[in-house]
Nucleic acid binder design. Structure first.
Length: 259
DNA sequence: CCCTATGTTCCCAA
DNA sequence: CTTGGGAACATAGG
């Protein structure tokens, strides 16, 4: 799951716990034992940086990294929680995470790259891409440059930008990057409005799936027709991750001159 | 049994 | 130094 739109969805929904005190913490997976420190503390605010949701308590910030299958559920837990929090309203907030890659990081979580919804990321991408031959898909997913984009949205953003996933980033122009920024913002905002993408585990705070999966153009659509030109969507692996694209719409561009 | 899967991090090699 | 591949983390599902 959890890329930027899913985490933003949770942030909005968890907002109802702001101002409340944590009456009790139950830890079912001792790896997460440190999170007991929030007991008896008031939740003062919530913010999101990339894929990380930060709970700001009176005395400490707790950054939640959801990993692959992490999610939050209010009320009755569907699945076995790794940790549960009782708030003063009497409601439980459960952290469910079958693959157990998620973590609570105590203390001021160090922000990494710039959040993907920050205006100006196109120019940032352009500046940092100069002279590099990295494939653009890996670059969009590099959380140390711009944080929040994962495997699903990277594929969709590149399709809508008409850029091949293997495109060397140093050969893209300023204009290309500004276009990619615009597409990125559009995709992420639309996915937030649709409460994220449920292709397997993702559910929102109330246990409901998102609906952006119905809007996917290429992700996990190998062999199906491209929604723009009708050609067949292809798949390959990049960095161990499935990568989908339309071979007609997304061609690798190269500079006309080479040093 | 085999393969795949929304994330991150580390090691190794070209 | 840069980049890609693979493994590890751990589990579920087709």
């Amino acid at each position: 799951m959890p890329e930027l739109p899913e985490v933003e969805t949770l942030k909005g929904q968890v907002g109802c716990f702001c101002g409340q005190k944590v009456e009790e913490v139950r830890v079912w997976d001792e790896v997460l034992g440190e999170v007991r420190k929030v007991e008896a503390q008031r939740l003062e605010g919530l913010y999101r940086h990339g894929k990380v949701l930060v709970f700001s308590f009176e005395g400490v910030d707790v950054a939640l990294k959801l990993g692959v299958t992490g999610r939050l559920k209010v009320g009755v837990a569907d699945g076995r929680p790794r940790a549960s929090f009782l708030f003063s309203s009497g409601e439980w907030l459960h952290f469910i995470d079958p693959r157990r890659f998620g973590r609570f990081v105590m203390g001021n979580g160090v922000p990494r790259g710039v959040d993907a919804l920050t205006p100006g990321i196109g120019l940032l991408w352009w500046e940092k891409a100069k002279g590099s031959s990295r494939p653009v898909k890996a670059y969009l997913m590099d959380q140390d440059i711009v944080s929040g984009i994962g495997n699903i949205y990277a594929s969709e953003i590149l399709f809508l930008s008409r850029v091949h996933p293997l495109q060397p980033i140093g050969d893209l122009t300023e204009r290309d990057w500004l276009q990619i920024e615009e597409v990125t913002r559009g995709v992420l905002q639309e996915a937030i409005e649709m409460r994220g993408t449920t292709v397997s585990d993702w559910r929102d705070l109330y246990g409901l799936p998102g609906s952006y999966q119905h809007r996917l153009r290429v992700y996990q659509r190998e062999g199906k027709p491209c929604p723009r030109c009708g050609d067949t969507v292809k798949k390959f692996y990049l960095g161990g991750r499935g990568t989908w694209y339309c071979p007609s719409c997304q061609e690798v561009r190269k500079e006309s001159w080479r040093p």
